[in-house]
Design a protein around this nucleic acid. Structure first.
Lengths: 327, 327
DNA sequence: GAAAGTTGCGGTACCGTTTCCACGATAGCT
DNA sequence: AGCTATCGTGGAAACGGTACCGCAACTTTC
């Protein structure tokens, strides 16, 4: 089956340690010996056993990613980006879906931490300090910040300001906001952005309250929005916006003629709605890339100072926003 | 940091082998000794090092999943289902996104196979025999069949028949079909189902040709569909259907009044389109569950006979299909 | 030409766990 | 009482690598 380093050593007429050195490009080996070893390894189709290597080096060559829900395209995107960057770095990645359950998040940390060199926590729902206490490896956060930890976040409040400015420029003066789960960290960021935007532009913001961050959440919020004097609505994320669009269409409200809708995230389906959704673009693939890089740095040197990267956001204007009609 | 089995042994006043036996419920240990060991392990927060255990047992406790594209909600769903079932079985899962690239699929097999006890290949794009040649562990296929391998597929052709029968019952006699990539295995299944359906119902099927299995593919196909005499259209999958809906809406065609649209997969966004999409439901979470179970069986006994499970499909009728208008 | 440094390689000791074997003690049998 | 099972336990080997040390041969230096 799998040939071992000793098989290669025998075939090449050298010792096991020499094979190890020759193949890992470490230590000094004569060119002639090295090529003989490489030839033998090739012939036997030898691949170092990662488990055995991991035992002695303490490195697994793996990264772990914990997300609240893979079905949310936002997290799927992060997973994809992380995967791709990890592959480029020669790492494999464990993915754990915590099903929006803080308990499962902790469980995932515990079961993964021994098998990976580093952990990426994406939008964790639970207490970060608690999670980190159970992690035996470096940790990087995505879409959440925590003192003393490296993190990659997006400038959500800046994006919010841009969105509101754009709506204001179109002529909207009263804007509804559909909030998500109250505990959400990014939710806090958005509300802060809204306060800033109100100060900067003078628009009036109507908080419609907390809804689930899902299609149904948006669906439910639509009726409240229509009952309000707002001419535009900012949704917690694109999925919520999608629910809004749907309910609005069902009620015969035209978008953007009667109501303008703006989402957050710019996930794939934001382009697929009708009309295509104006949305605040949050970088995901690049966030994932950065997260891998931060992690790799922390693995190489555990004492490296944590870094809090904030990625720029921008507004993607599509067809769901326009000049408000008189109501 | 992490305490070892010897630390526990010392703390409990026994040997390392006794600790191993006590904790793994294997072999004979007196009740008194066991509880002393367990107490010591608890106190030291001892967790067996999975790497070391893996080295000696040859088991990693991990599963590998290779999908073409995590952004496709279909595959994200499979990943989620697999993950959840694996967790319930005490396994962790590696996820590899091959980016629709056969070369990356092979690479993923090679880099994962030594770190897992079993591999799940979901809709592989490449030659399955070639992939399996490089796998050192049991393999289960999802959404593809291959002689000698366990697989979990959905009865796509049966679902197709149901879809066509439904359209026929509504009064459609000419149906367009938007095909996906020519090489696709499921594509073949759908075409076969179409042939069956034509025989059974006598409808006429117009093949609009091969398109990318994406939103853009559907977008592009819409114009061809409108130029044909068909009153209903079957799309390669829900995403393609979504593209169709969009282009139809943009051209002022009403769904389902002017044209009926049917998708495949029943992914989440099928509920979120306007109008909500009638679609052939393909089980994913249960496919993933079955795949884990088949794999676990194959891991326990490598000589177990391969099983080809075919899961039932059904038509989910939503608002995108209706009685055809005279054109 | 001898001392010192460099290079290439083999031997050995681990990494942390499980598994196999041996051994003493206790129990059950004739 | 002696002989054989059975049970509980400790010791040692093994899994497949890498790291460290030491040694021989060769090169450099004054």
């Amino acid at each position: 089956m799998g040939s071992t380093i000793r098989d290669v050593a025998r075939a090449a007429g050298v010792s096991a340690s020499t094979v190890s050195r020759a193949l890992s490009e470490r230590g000094s080996v004569s060119g002639e010996t090295r090529s003989r070893v490489i030839a033998a390894a090739e012939r036997l189709d030898y691949r170092p056993n990662p488990t055995a290597r991991g035992l002695i080096t303490g490195r697994t060559g793996n990264l772990g990613l914990i997300v609240p829900d893979l079905l949310n395209p936002f997290f799927a995107d992060v997973a994809k980006g992380l995967q791709s960057r990890a592959r480029a770095t020669g790492l494999s990645v464990f993915v754990a879906d915590a099903d929006e359950d803080p308990r499962l998040e902790l469980e995932a940390v515990q079961s993964l931490t021994r098998q990976v060199d580093g952990l990426v926590l994406c939008s964790p729902r639970s207490d970060v300090a608690e999670l980190v206490r159970h992690a035996a490896t470096p940790v990087v956060l995505i879409h959440r910040r925590h003192p003393g930890l490296s993190s990659v976040t997006a400038d959500v409040s800046g994006g919010t300001v841009k969105a509101v400015q754009n709506l204001r420029a179109l002529g909207h003066t009263t804007i509804a906001y559909v909030d998500g789960p109250a505990a959400s960290w990014v939710g806090g960021q958005r509300r802060e952005g809204l306060r800033e935007a109100v100060q900067a532009t003078g628009v009036e913001v109507i908080h419609l309250g907390n809804f689930a961050g899902t299609f149904d959440g948006g669906f439910a919020a639509a009726d409240l929005m229509l009952a309000s004097p707002a001419t535009a609505v900012l949704a917690y994320n694109d999925i919520v916006a999608c629910g809004l669009l749907n309910r609005l269409a069902a009620r015969g409200v035209r978008v953007p003629d009667d109501v303008s809708v703006v989402g957050y995230d710019d996930v794939t389906i934001a382009m697929m709605t009708y009309p295509p959704l104006t949305t605040v673009h949050l970088p995901r693939q690049s966030a994932a890339r950065t997260a891998v890089d931060l992690l790799v740095a922390a693995i190489k040197d555990p004492d490296v100072a944590p870094r809090e990267d904030v990625l720029a956001t921008h507004l993607v204007v599509r067809a769901s926003t326009g000049v408000p009609a008189r109501r």
